[in-house]
Every structure is written in structure tokens, then in C-alpha cells.
Write a protein that binds this DNA or RNA. Structure first.
Lengths: 102, 102
DNA sequence: AATCTATTTCGCTATTTAGCTAAATGACGA
DNA sequence: TCGTCATTTAGCTAAATAGCGAAATAGATT
């Protein structure tokens, strides 16, 4: 659940797409896997990374596993990083704003 | 400069830290490299990736190279992705800026 | 030109990641 | 229990990534 876990998880296009799909609601591992041209074990590995990063949650529901998006983790990580590089609301850092001498 | 380039660039902690450092202003390659416990050739490789992703710009200034943060690329990518997963303004899919699936 | 400094490119090795098939696990229905 | 479906784990290979030291390049300075 560290910051690096999260950015590692986001590094793979398939994993980013999985997150996008889950935006619309929970889906089972199989349903998700069917949308991608890789094997199910490979997809299972992607799910494991997303789960390790805290970006999705798996719920065991009657024989299959439904994954749901954990939006708050993602939001916290991305907004936090954006703040640190100076994007968005000024809650980035407490001292000098960008723009002074290099 | 694709979406994947950007997220690949963000995957490495050193590269994320470089971006944070540059928030305060431009720095030369050597100045940046001195802050990290890896060799200069290794840092040079990190700069190359950040540059390929469009996240920094290098300016040749009197014998050394000053890198500056290209905030707009980063902002566009992160806000775009956040929009796609449903973070931020309710608008989910704005305009696809990256059609990469590789 | 010769040299010095800053940075990158070139080989090279070690580690990590992504993908596969095959086998194992877990839950469910007959 | 037996078989079946859904998913994960195990074991492997190929490719990508990160790191290094040595050498090459590019600008300045002498």
C-alpha cells in the first residue's frame, strides 16, 4: 500500500484499464479478464498487484470474486502527488511558491 | 509522449523525486544527480525517460544542462486519468488524449 | 590546439516484470 | 462424493529495467 506500489500498479496499461472499467461498478475476475487479450493467470497477476496497492478490493461472492474500485486510495495518492509537484490546490507545500529564482 | 510513457516515467521513485525537486525551479543535471545515491550515467537515463515522457525539458546553458519541470504535461496526464476513473469533476470521459494500449 | 568539466552513450550484468501452460484450490450442484 | 466452474499458484521463458564503470561527446577555458 505504499506510494511506489500505487505508481507501479498504474504503470501497466492493462491495470489502468481495469480501474477504468471498475469505475462503472463491480465485476468478477472472469468478466474483467474476458476483455483483455491475455490469459486468465496473467490477469490474476494484474489483480494481485492492484489489490496489493489498495486500488481494488475483492469480494468472494458465490463462487466467483467480484472486484470493486477503491477510489479513495487512488484519489489520495494522485492528489497527494500532484500537490507535491505543485499541481492543483495550493496545499502542496507550506513555503515559497514556485516562481522564484532558480 | 504517450500516456504509457508518462506513467512509466512516474513508476520510479527517483524520477518522481526529480519532478518534485524541479518544482522549485530549474537545476542542472549534475545538481540533481548529486542528491541521489546512484551514478551519473544512471541519473542520465532517468532524465532521458522523463524527457521522453515530456515531463521535463533540458536547456543547454553554458556548459551544463538545466532541466525544468514541464508541469502542463504532467497535469494534463494526471487530470485526464483521474477524470477517466471518476475522480474530481463528475465528468468521466472528457476527451481521450491517449489511445495507447501497448 | 589542448584541456577541463559536464553529461551522455556504450557494453555489460543482475533483477524484475509479463506472459504462458499446467496444476492446485475453493465453492457449488448433482 | 464427484464433477464442474472460477480463480489462483507454480514453474518456467523472454523481455524490459536499473544499475555500474569506461569511453565518448559537447562546451567552455586556457
Amino acid at each position: 500500500m505504499t506510494m511506489s506500489d500505487i505508481f507501479d500498479a498504474l504503470a501497466h496499461p492493462i491495470r489502468r484499464e481495469v480501474l477504468e472499467m471498475l469505475k462503472l461498478g463491480g465485476m468478477t475476475a472472469g468478466e474483467i479478464a474476458d476483455q483483455f487479450p491475455v490469459s486468465k493467470p496473467t490477469m490474476s497477476g494484474h489483480f494481485a498487484k492492484l489489490k496489493a496497492a489498495g486500488l481494488i478490493r475483492g469480494e468472494n461472492r458465490s463462487g466467483s470474486i467480484t472486484y470493486t474500485l477503491n477510489l479513495s486510495t487512488l484519489e489520495e495518492a494522485l492528489l497527494g502527488f500532484m500537490g507535491r509537484v505543485g499541481i492543483g490546490s495550493g496545499e502542496a507545500d507550506h513555503q515559497g511558491k514556485a516562481g522564484d529564482t532558480a
